[in-house]
Design a protein around this nucleic acid. Structure first.
Lengths: 219, 219
DNA sequence: GCCAAATTAGACCAGTCGTCTAGTGCCGCA
DNA sequence: TGCGGCACTAGACGACTGGTCTAATTTGGC
């Protein structure tokens, strides 16, 4: 299975992660808007956040916004792509760590995310699930971006599961794609419950259930 | 615009003995606003929906809104409670059906919900998860109502699991409360995925995974 | 016919997204 | 050194909608 089509992203302007920290304004401004947007929209939702608040937080005048983004909707798409890229970047190390077995890697990426949620306190952002639900019937472009992210995410998990199966860590009778979908579903549900209960307990429940029971190497 | 058809309303729960006033128009107006609100907000989200649209759909003048609800926020709380009551009402029959074993009952309530989602088409409402995420950091009263619903829901599932354990349908080594939380999490995740993929496949994946694997009576 | 309660109409202003024009600073080119 | 064009900043402005609230109207019991 091929990775989903990569949409036009900031990569057209500069190679990712090349610059250390130049006080360059142009790229920096766009990024500042995105960072502020992720913060505010992660807290108050897409429709609940006005551009004014986002731009005030970013310290960027309104005129600049529409230089970098055609509309608030397109801004939402950019937000999702940014969140996906950041997340994958964070997990890259664990994902391709050849010193660990596939199942260990699978466990690592969930555990790392859990630890990050804990570090960030009880009001984590969870930007993507939030935008997913809010724009599912509201904005087709944002919805498409969200769907793309989830397919990619499921594919990554499925691949790990297949590797784990090939080394005998996971029962080969399980359908890897369906199992991956179930894991993603469960994880998203846990993330929601974390928001509702304002506790990382659901994430711990997920980890314990999956890695100490469901996929436990010794059966 | 023609007036919206009257929602197929079974007798809504009525505060017992509050007044002898016949519940003709007054309750009906309130209910009409709630029904329209569930429809619109389920589609476009809480912040994405204006009172104007809701009230136009309900055929109720704007001024009346604040006679029945103190604020939009309180309206949100009422919406959640209504959704919960409706849902529990629908499931009541299966929940307490003594002709079925506990595990069969557990399966029935999820299957029924799945069938209803299928009947309602690909854009089901999913009001509660939507409001849950949108208001988690926005409105404390709504958030509290949401949390209450989830706790109740988890407790119901846990009780069913305990009954299933007591008749040997489910492994007694499993902690019923944690298993219940995991099921709820998974179900919510499946509901989200249903919205994203616009398909009930995730619900079917859930059902197959849980009832043909995880909890399958024959091990 | 009258009064109080139930209900409605519509004004209200803060805030929405998006537009627009004027202004700034920086670049290559002469 | 000066010039012209371009990328970007700056923020006022407009058309509109948001939720809220007060004042007016209807309603119904006496």
């Amino acid at each position: 299975m091929n990775p989903p089509p990569k949409p036009h992203s900031a990569a057209t302007q500069l190679p990712p992660g090349s610059s250390a920290a130049p006080p360059d304004t142009s790229i920096d401004t766009r990024e500042r808007i995105l960072a502020a947007g992720a913060e505010v929209i992660g807290r108050k939702g897409f429709n609940g956040s006005g551009l004014n608040e986002i731009l005030t937080l970013a310290g960027v005048p309104k005129g600049s916004f529409y230089h970098y983004f055609a509309s608030k909707e397109e801004f939402g798409v950019a937000l999702i792509e940014r969140a996906r890229d950041q997340y994958l970047e964070e997990l890259k190390e664990s994902l391709y760590d050849r010193k660990r077995t596939p199942l260990q890697r699978l466990r690592a990426i969930f555990t790392e995310t859990r630890n990050q949620c804990q570090a960030q306190g009880p009001t984590v952002e969870c930007l993507i699930p939030k935008l997913a639900l809010e724009t599912a019937t509201l904005s087709e472009p944002v919805h498409a971006a969200v769907r793309c992210v989830y397919q990619q995410w499921s594919a990554i998990i499925a691949q790990l599961i297949r590797e784990a199966q090939s080394v005998g860590e996971v029962d080969r009778a399980q359908d890897a794609d369906r199992l991956a979908n179930v894991l993603v579903m469960m994880w998203e549900g846990a993330a929601i419950r974390m928001q509702i209960d304002r506790s990382i307990q659901p994430l711990d429940d997920f980890l314990a259930f999956v890695f100490d029971g469901l996929l436990h190497p010794r059966r």
